[in-house]
Design a protein around this nucleic acid. Structure first.
Lengths: 240, 240
DNA sequence: CATAACCTTGTACGGCGTACAACGTAAGAT
DNA sequence: ATCTTACGTTGTACGCCGTACAAGGTTATG
């Protein structure tokens, strides 16, 4: 293990340890590997981000990638932190808390829509990265106007971001979408037979919700509706 | 492909196609494979559920497993539906909607805590399974006392279950938990150097939240707090 | 008894992450 | 100017994975 993950996360910081001076110049940098990985993930999903593939993309052998990243798991952490680092962080100006939090939610939704693979990265070590910390700080400040103690502030932010995460999950296109019509053709008849008239409420609501989701307009009523509910709840009184 | 997934999902239904009469008796059943998979997943996580491993557990060759499940992806769908099918579904009696929804949320949290691997299964085809449909129907009925149309009812349930899912994710023990002390020992000094006095809010709130999470009591303030907020929001007026 | 349908199995293929050792390269030490 | 040392790069190999395929055994049906 050449350099620890924490030092790779902070590789752009002045205090970060540099590679030793001897030996040949590295053909690529850690940053280049991370960027290449993100590009592949954006285009073909996280599963396409393999070490051999990255080697190809970077014009380098597979094993050479390990000079810059330690392991694939570490790479995922670096990818996530880099994505967070790149998020725009406009100042909040004089906006009220509701607008501020709405902006935070919308920015996160946009990020997750752009990089759906972030939903698959679940590694606590990202919390130590500069991008993740900067994002956290910025988003905590959105709650400045609200009377929250430290723990409550963290809980409120988590509450909002979890909602966003679920919404992004729901909006993510099903990778099986193109098979679904054929599947439905083969299955719908059988399913009707199995179901009979049992679970009528589920049948009715399910088909209504299914149609609503495929409806051309209102791409996400659930989003705007849910977000307003979430915002409302932030001003609700404490436990009862 | 011997039998379609939909028929495997409904394998206990009288109308489900049975295996042909000829040939030797199958050594195991689809149900046995699914149960074995769930047992392994409970004990060692979903990644330990491999086809070869299931063969071992069932005393059968790896390839023989494919007689009963078609593919590993299909198996995951069967596992999820079986878990949903086994959830207790007590009647709601005369309980008010708030109690009913709270019970639904608590039942789902308990399920996800018992079977954390459910969080990793994300296949829309589960929606066609008998367990999933029965669960859906039962949970929709929790909302009977509320004045919701079909689409709104589905949206409300999704809203609640997404919250539960996020809470279960947060409560899930980190598989890296045992490495963390050593990691922190090596990293905390460096992180402090990198951070300096930047992002002071994040530093303060982060450590407060971290301590609160490791606190012995109040295993999840976030859960009860968040759930009440979610419940409140279900009675809020519509969009504004 | 022959046939056809079914289950089981071993082998094999192409993928994965990555350990390891050999080799080349360039800066510091002498 | 040479030697030494640290480092980057590479090919090979190991043990996993899911699963395609073909061969062979087993049983009810014609």
């Amino acid at each position: 293990m050449p350099r620890e993950l924490i030092d790779l996360l902070w590789r752009d910081h002045p205090a970060a340890p540099q590679g030793g001076a001897r030996g040949p110049r590295a053909a690529v940098t850690t940053g280049a590997v991370v960027d290449a990985a993100a590009t592949v993930a954006d285009a073909e999903g996280l599963a396409a981000v393999t070490v051999r593939r990255l080697g190809d993309v970077l014009g380098v052998s597979a094993m050479s990638v390990y000079t810059h990243v330690n392991s694939r798991d570490d790479l995922l952490v670096l990818m996530a932190d880099a994505a967070f680092a790149r998020m725009p962080r406009p100042g909040y100006g004089t906006a009220g808390w509701r607008t501020r939090v709405r902006r935070v939610a919308e920015a996160n939704l946009a990020l997750l829509n752009e990089h759906p693979w972030l939903l698959e990265i679940d590694d606590d070590r990202t919390a130590f990265g500069p991008g993740t910390i900067a994002k956290y700080d910025h988003e905590l400040h959105a709650l400045d106007p609200l009377p929250l103690d430290d723990v409550g502030r963290d809980a409120a932010l988590t509450f909002v971001l979890d909602f966003v995460r679920a919404a992004a999950r729901a909006q993510r296109p099903d990778p099986r979408a193109d098979e679904m019509p054929a599947l439905w053709g083969r299955w719908s008849g059988r399913l009707a037979e199995y179901l009979g008239d049992a679970h009528q409420l589920a049948q009715r609501v399910g088909s209504a919700a299914g149609e609503a989701m495929n409806a051309p307009s209102s791409p996400s009523h659930a989003w705007s509706y849910g977000l307003e509910r979430i915002l409302d709840s932030l001003t609700a009184p404490g436990d009862r």
